[in-house]
Design a protein around this nucleic acid. Structure first.
Lengths: 148, 148
DNA sequence: ATAAAACTTAAAGTTAACTTTAAGTCAAGA
DNA sequence: TCTTGACTTAAAGTTAACTTTAAGTTTTAT
């Protein structure tokens, strides 16, 4: 199957201008053109774009993604480099997840805080609780928030 | 304890210009000034800043964080609104974590792919494997990447 | 008293990743 | 053939969240 830029964009859920921008930035060297100069996307290009999407979600910048693509185009000599890059991004994503978990823990505390405030009619109640009145799961979090 | 903008910035691990920028944008209405016009941060301001930091990590924009701060300054009438906002951000962060987990699953597949390519000396080996030759955990992932 | 360091503001500059615009070309259907 | 919609490029505009600069003021230390 062959696709125009608009069709491929729809498949991916992005704007056509995004794909043109990626192309301009050199991320799509594999995309061919019709005799009239119109981009012709193949099914295998969809796979490339899904990889670009994945790497983007790991926080990689477009220029670094471009480097990865050129490595891949360079064939089997770059397998080690590509593996190293994937492992690096794995580590980066795991760290991001840990940080999000920390953020979620803080939100859990804040939710308990406002639920307690709601029942009491005032934030003074959770705010002025002593540490041992808090659910234990929140004690360390409140300490950190308060810089203790 | 009282702090200058530079001291508070150091505590938080941000640039002093960032705190001045937040102040300019109206996120720090609680920060007071010395007679000479210099910002004087209190310990309680540190707590505000940690909340700003947390909300920022959930993906909230500064203007929305500002609204939250003004709600909080408006006292107990806004407890319900603040609780609703925290719950909304909780949901947003959970969704972000799910998406990161999806990304991590794809990276796990790619890692296996390049490890297999490395052993074989060529990406042709993992690329041309039939679905039942793949570890089952990766079958659905490869299908999705290939648009099948 | 004075020098250095850190503060002040306003305004301009930066960055990444797009998006929009303008002017024009290609392709598909009637 | 002609119209219409989608394509093309180059260039300018957008956005958020800062950062930097410049010119000047306050505070701290000697």
């Amino acid at each position: 199957m062959l696709y125009t830029v608009g069709e491929m964009a729809k498949h991916l859920g992005v704007a056509p201008s995004t794909l043109r921008y990626y192309d301009k930035e050199g991320l799509l060297p594999f995309v061919e053109r019709s005799s009239g100069g119109i981009r012709v996307f193949k099914d295998s290009d969809y796979e490339w774009l899904r990889i670009i999407e994945c790497l983007k979600k790991t926080g990689m910048k477009l220029t670094d993604i471009k480097d990865f693509i050129y490595m891949a185009l360079n064939g089997d000599d770059t397998i080690d480099d590509r593996l190293a890059l994937i492992i690096k991004q794995q580590t980066a994503v795991r760290k991001q997840m840990e940080e999000l978990q920390e953020t979620l823990n803080t939100l859990n505390f804040k939710r308990w805080y406002y639920e307690t405030a709601k029942k009491a009619g005032t934030t003074a109640v959770p705010r002025n609780m002593t540490l041992d009145e808090l659910p234990e799961e929140f004690r360390a979090i409140r300490k950190r928030l308060r810089g203790e």
